[in-house]
């Protein structure tokens, strides 16, 4: 699919960053506000899908040299792995904990192991969605 649309491409370049930022924001805020792994992941992947639709695959691939299948696999491993992590500390599978930390820039912040789990979810979503779209569009 070759689309030559300068306006669309220019707009996309800016919009993609806005969407990506929004996605990360949604992902991070999930614990207190609407958002979380699924939504964050979906927003991120929609940004990638938009890129792939507007530019051709080779161009995007130069900019983002990920194999999204591996991203998805890593996400699954991360999600399962955080579950196993709690087993190491003697708690039951997938027990999550949270605690407050004083970080230099952000001040008092609550960090939670759910974040890691959610990151796994988000990465899987991104990986799978992009893989699906890419697989279909590559197969011409």
């Amino acid at each position: 699919m070759k689309i030559n649309d300068v306006i669309l491409q220019t707009v996309t370049k800016i919009v993609v960053f806005i969407i990506l930022t929004f996605g990360v924001e949604l992902f991070l805020s999930g614990h207190y506000n609407p958002g979380g792994g699924f939504i964050g992941g979906l927003v991120l992947s929609s940004a990638f899908v938009l890129l792939y639709l507007v530019f051709d695959i080779e161009t995007v691939h130069k900019g983002i040299p990920f194999d999204f299948k591996k991203v998805a696999a890593f996400g699954v491993l991360l999600a399962v792995g955080t579950g196993l992590g709690s087993v190491l500390f003697g708690a039951s599978f997938l027990t999550q904990t949270a605690s407050h930390f004083n970080l230099p820039v952000f001040g008092a912040t609550e960090l939670s192991t759910v974040m890691l789990f959610e990151a796994g979810v988000a990465l899987t979503v991104v990986g799978v969605v992009v893989t699906i779209i890419l697989s279909i569009s590559e197969d011409v």
Binding site: H31, Y32, N33, G35, Q96, A98, E110, V114
Partner: peptide, 8 residues
């Protein structure tokens, strides 16, 4: 669970 978004 230390979170305020119940769904999450």
């Amino acid at each position: 669970a230390g979170g305020k978004n119940i769904v999450n």
